[in-house]
């Protein structure tokens, strides 16, 4: 494990560089194939509407995968992440157009723990709504 950020350099409130991740229908088809999650709510509009959703929605695990990138891009070594948890609060709705949707992710150091570890709280928004709740990672820094 070789995080490029030093524990001594960060404080409670230190903000990680925010990022925005685009999501189109093509993204979801690719993620379905790579993850093996072929639930039709992630690619079939007719099916999604029939089960009460507004439209096709992104895989929760896709959103979870994007949100932690703000942390792994910050540390350089993804192995710095020793714990990561989220609550799926709202779906990311992905319309069938050129733009699709966007997941905006920001994060900040919320606590300094023992053993050169910090707790990072992550915020993920799409279309003005918080899509992940209780989204936290424990990260071991250099």
């Amino acid at each position: 494990m070789a995080a490029k950020i030093s524990y001594d350099e960060v404080e409670v409130g230190t903000e990680l560089p925010a990022q925005t991740f685009p999501v189109t229908r093509a993204t979801l088809v690719q993620y379905a194939g790579a993850s093996g999650d072929f639930n039709p709510i992630h690619w079939n509009e007719k099916f999604a509407v029939e089960v009460g959703l507004p439209d096709v929605i992104a895989h929760g695990m896709f959103t979870m995968a994007e949100a932690i990138r703000v942390v792994t891009d910050w540390t350089g070594d993804p192995a710095a992440v020793v714990e990561y948890g989220v609550r799926f609060t709202k779906p990311v709705v992905v319309p069938n157009d050129d733009k699709g949707a966007a997941v905006e992710v920001s994060a900040k150091v919320a606590a300094k723990l023992d053993d050169r570890r910090v707790r990072v709280d992550i915020t993920a928004m799409s279309a003005g709504q918080k899509v992940l709740g209780m989204s936290r990672a424990v990260v071991e820094l250099a």
Partner: peptide, 26 residues
């Protein structure tokens, strides 16, 4: 399979696809 997954989430971190880069991180 790791490469396919990393590409699907759009993550270009070389630790996922480049053995030398992964080794450099230990």
């Amino acid at each position: 399979k790791i490469r396919e997954f990393a590409e699907a989430i759009g993550d270009a971190n070389p630790a996922y696809t480049d053995t030398e880069a992964a080794k450099a991180l230990g």
